[in-house]
Computed example of a mutant assay.
Amino acid sequence: MGEFEAIRPYDDAEVSTVLARLFADDAFLGTLTRYRFPKLAGPLGWLLKPVIAHRLRREFASIDSVAALQDRIEPYVDNTIERATDGVTYSGVERLKPGTAYLFLANHRDIVMDPAFVNYAVYHAGLPTPRIAIGDNLLQKPFVSDLMRLNKSFIVHRNLAGRREKLAAFQLLSAYINHSIREDGQSIWIAQAEGRAKDGDDRTDSAILKMFHMSRKDEPFAEVIRNLHLIPVSISYEYDPCDQAKARELQIRASTGSYAKAPGEDDASIALGITGYKGRVHIAFGSEIGGASEDAKQLAQEIDQQILGGYRLFPVHYLAYAMWGKQDPELRVPAAADLFRGEELARAQAEWQKRLDACTEEQRPYLVQQYAMPVRNQYRVKAGLPL
């Protein structure tokens, strides 16, 4: 396991040491204090932090494995999900076989909650949770890195300048993913493309698929994919807590050609994504890819068919599509009122209007697009039209 030292999650033997380090970390304790006691954190933070540290040490004193840690924090995760959603449903999880390690390739809308919801579904199905790919751009603070690696996350190095460095990082990542599934028997979660699909257009980057093959070039591409037990996963949010911020970014990019993140912007997105209202959430596990595709582009199309076809469309998506300026003339998309009735539709109309009102006129088309695009994509899949 030495070759993966720089990117791997922590193992059971490291849990106690890392927890002790976290509970002595001033930045971590400060974050918890601000979250738990937002009004008192400023004037009384110096007093609250040691109290929180003492309570954490006592509560987690017996934790000596990653599985035990996940069991302990699961009620907190469930509570967070219950407070920020109107319910979570999932489908296809019954097809997952105990004892088989999978490569879960998912659409990407939220930095933390996408893998958290997949974990939620898998955990409650009584199966081991996957190891999670996370970009090093999100691990600027040591305590964040510790937290994520404790929770079975491994690091994807993104901020690399040279071609040789990037190639070496991809080679290592490929080797680790293959080793995890084929040797360790541990599932993997990774996004279908780098970065969130801020415009609502969920598409698989074929470069990700080529990466899976990089460390096993001596084997046929289709065979490598087959041995990874790749499962496309579609994660559907009724409402995106970060939709306004995404619309703003897209509008600025369109008008200026670029967008520079403000300091702490990723942290703010993570916090809003976790705590913000999401409405209903659905996680659809697709069918295992058989490995018939001989190249990455063909495989990407097969995966997209499943992810886009498995996306759960809510009333808000149809409301957005009806006002979208880029409706597809080849498609017959029903109106929201033809599919949803009564209180459900009225609630969606009120929530959608609230989000439209909160958006500037210049940014509104980008907000509409986020919710309309999944409708276009799914109906093209249903009609057998090219994506």
Rank of each mutant, 00 (worst) to 15 (best):
D240H: 09
E238S: 07
R216A: 15
D202Q: 06
Q192C: 06
S258I: 05
R164G: 05
W189E: 04
G257Q: 07
A175L: 06
I231F: 00
V233P: 01
L172F: 01
S255K: 09
A191L: 06
R203P: 01
P220N: 03
A191V: 11
L167T: 12
K210V: 11
I225D: 01
A254C: 03
S255R: 14
Q251I: 03
M211C: 08
I188A: 01
I225T: 04
R203M: 06
S174P: 05
Q171D: 14
A254E: 14
I252M: 03
A268E: 10
P263L: 11
S174C: 08
F170N: 08
K261L: 11
E194C: 04
E183P: 02
M214Q: 09
D266Q: 05
S234L: 07
R196I: 13
G273I: 11
E238H: 08
S187Q: 07
E165C: 11
E249K: 07
C242L: 15
D201H: 12
D201F: 06
S236D: 02
A169V: 09
S236H: 03
E249P: 10
R203S: 07
M214Y: 05
D205W: 04
S269W: 01
I274S: 02
K217Q: 14
I225P: 02
T256S: 12
A207P: 02
K166A: 08
D218Q: 12
L167Q: 08
D184E: 14
D184H: 01
M214P: 00
A247V: 14
S236T: 06
D266H: 03
Y237W: 08
S269C: 07
T275Y: 01
P220K: 09
I231V: 14
A245N: 06
A262D: 10
L172M: 13
Q244E: 12
S269E: 13
I252L: 05
E183T: 15
A271K: 07
D184F: 00
N178Y: 03
S236C: 07
Q251A: 15
A197P: 02
G257V: 13
Q244D: 09
D243A: 13
L230Y: 02
